[in-house]
Design a protein around this nucleic acid. Sequence first.
DNA 1: CATGAAACAACACTAAG
DNA 2: CTTAGTGTTGTTTCATG
Lengths: 159, 159
Amino acid sequence: MTKAKPASGLRSENQPLDAIDSALLRALDAEARLPLSELSRRVGLSAPSVAERIRRMETSGVLTGFTVETDARALGYAIRALVRIRPLPGKMHLVEQLIQEMPAIVECDRITGDDPFLARLVARSVEEMDKALDALSGHAVTSTAVIKGQSVKRRLPPL
Amino acid sequence: MTKAKPASGLRSENQPLDAIDSALLRALDAEARLPLSELSRRVGLSAPSVAERIRRMETSGVLTGFTVETDARALGYAIRALVRIRPLPGKMHLVEQLIQEMPAIVECDRITGDDPFLARLVARSVEEMDKALDALSGHAVTSTAVIKGQSVKRRLPPL
DNA sequence: CATGAAACAACACTAAG
DNA sequence: CTTAGTGTTGTTTCATG
């Protein structure tokens, strides 16, 4: 036996995450396609155990999916912007529908405050951006801030 | 010896993706751990071809990584918020450093406009959120909007 | 009850066409 | 880009502390 790690035995089932789950989550966050065999080496567990832990995190709703990160610029979208959207009176629902149908909007949160929506938008040019936002004219007031860069890349919250 | 392939054997990095690359990207966006064999079935190509296409998209910078999506709520973070941050005069760089060191901030863009930063923050409670933002007090003015929900889940731009 | 070990099936990779 | 051959990986079943 090379590994004498104690694994102090039991792990409560409903507990958010133990140290091993956290390590798995961080490893998968960095490289979601890591094979179970590699993951099992890193955390000192067998592959079936790792597979079961991942499945459990999916079932419990902690891990909601595996996805890819793409570079909008490399896809031809030179402009990324954050747009605050304030629907005109009575147009809240219509505006939300329009937002959902705008392919240029790649993400949108409903938030508290004067502007109910904050959307992330991509465009190949400023002209295309303006044209996309025209879909909302007459229904909402928008405030656009162009993204100049990223100070913090998307990362996991503390585990 | 084989003859060279047609002149277009190599895709330019500025050129849009072809239909197969787009399909692969969409499939991986939905389920990043899909086996190459399954991907190859879906797009009607052999597995090695699919592997090469994915590698090429990574090399060209279109596909920047494979990662997981987690649910902050399931991790115990009941509060998500968007925080606009305006550093006090002369404190721009200090504030950016502080932001990067705050674990509660899971993403932050540098943007045009009055508030140079827009950060996404998670917290287990409003008290914890306020405490996290205290790290910036004296160095920046912040405006916080709590996230009530998502109108558009993160999705790929048109391909 | 969670983990580990061995069996089998599925998969990824390389080479060659 | 495809097909074939080889090694690796994932998964299932079963036994154990």
